[in-house]
Amino acid sequence: MNQLAATEVAAKPDRLVLGMMSGTSMDGLDLALVRVSAGPKPRLATLAHRTVPQPDSLALVPRQVLALDTAGLARLHTALGRFYAEAASAFCGGLGLSPDLVGLHGQTVYHEHGVTTLQLGDPHFLAEALHCPVVSDFRSADVALGGSGAPLVPFIDQLLLAEPGHTVVALNLGGIANVTILAGDGSVTGFDTGPANSLLDATVRAATQGRLTHDADGAWAARGRIDQGLLAELLAHPFFAMPPPRSTGPEEFGAAMAERLLHRSGLAEADLLATLTELTAQTIAQAIARHAPGAVKIVASGGGVRNAHLMARLDQALGDASLVTSAAAGIDPDAKEAIAFALLASLRIDRIPANLPAVTGASRPVLLGRICEM
């Protein structure tokens, strides 16, 4: 058995790293196999990526997770670990490649800004299956130093997307939308802007009693009309007025809000989805206008880029700024976060702090992630 220790991985000038990311929607696992050079400014080459659907038993909505007791959470932690190991083994085995290291984000089941964050998925199953170290639990160290543990991708955005002399905004359209503002002078800020897919997906699930999980291409929303009164009410939510650093989750913008709006608004489902899509577009555009007024380019990634209606409304809301996807920078939008956690794992092995206190609110830079070896 070829077992690699973290010290052996650290000694390699180049390493093969598997990044794994499961978002708040809990509907799929993103995997990306990346060749990474060691050091504080690593170079990378993405060799392959894939999204694996999560089994129905693990594709839980946040409300179902919050209803679990201690035994249920413990079983979910183990079941996710087994699923991650099986998916990673099949992915790497199909490529005929063995990673030197794994960066596992895990499944966020609860996040409360500045208070706590919890990701599940036992890394020991991965370490045993792939015979290499696994870095996981990336957010807790930042929380321990007074930070929110999110967002963490801005450090990677700075490495991959910064353009000296120009302000570039990296936009992630996951369950929650977040931005990294890469100023032309080299400074970096980042924060959650509000909902992206979480609120839309929850509305679709509630409206169809779970028969559908999302609005494919935004086609349902595109048939609706924006209710300006409800939009104004939603834009007045106190989260949108909070200064950075800030973070949020589906606990705030998810199933509970979706069901309340479906029952209270009196709108047709298409009109509600159109209004919520506009909420995402407007809150992103307003955040960028307020905190990155000189931005010349918005580089979008995440599952939301596949929502054609959302991207069209966002392009309209952004005005003169150029909206592109991360594919323009050679990074597949569906794989970007998995790639980011592969890089974060590599930085952890090299003992390089990878949080940005200006983004998370932590008191100082810190090493992110715990190393699991078998």
Rank of each mutant, 00 (worst) to 15 (best):
Q54E: 13
L200S: 03
R35Y: 06
A338E: 01
S363I: 07
F239M: 10
G96D: 13
S25I: 05
Q64P: 01
M257S: 06
A88L: 10
D100I: 07
E252K: 11
F341M: 02
H131F: 03
V204N: 01
A221R: 00
T180S: 15
L104D: 01
G147F: 10
D14Y: 12
A87H: 09
Q119H: 13
G229K: 14
S89E: 14
L104H: 06
D30C: 06
L276R: 04
A300W: 06
R82S: 09
A74G: 03
V366L: 07
H309D: 11
N355P: 08
A274M: 08
A219F: 02
H237Y: 10
T213N: 12
V34D: 05
D320V: 09
R211T: 13
E373T: 12
I226E: 13
L200N: 05
R63K: 13
G304K: 07
A281S: 04
L18G: 00
Q119M: 02
D215P: 04
V17N: 09
V17Y: 06
H124I: 07
L273S: 05
T78E: 15
L231Q: 12
R260N: 14
L182K: 08
T208C: 05
M21W: 06
H124W: 11
L310Q: 03
A141P: 00
A6W: 08
P357G: 01
G28D: 12
R348M: 07
F91H: 01
E128M: 05
R313A: 02
V52D: 12
H166P: 00
A308T: 14
Y84E: 10
R50Q: 15
G146Q: 14
Q286V: 01
A87P: 04
S22Q: 07
L76E: 09
V135P: 00
E86W: 02
G19D: 06
T213R: 15
G93R: 13
G147M: 10
H309F: 15
R246I: 06
G369I: 09
D217F: 11
A281D: 05
G147L: 11
D192V: 03
T117C: 06
S198P: 02
G186F: 11
S89L: 14
G218A: 04
L120E: 08
P333M: 04
S148P: 01
G28P: 07
T189P: 00
V134K: 10
A321W: 04
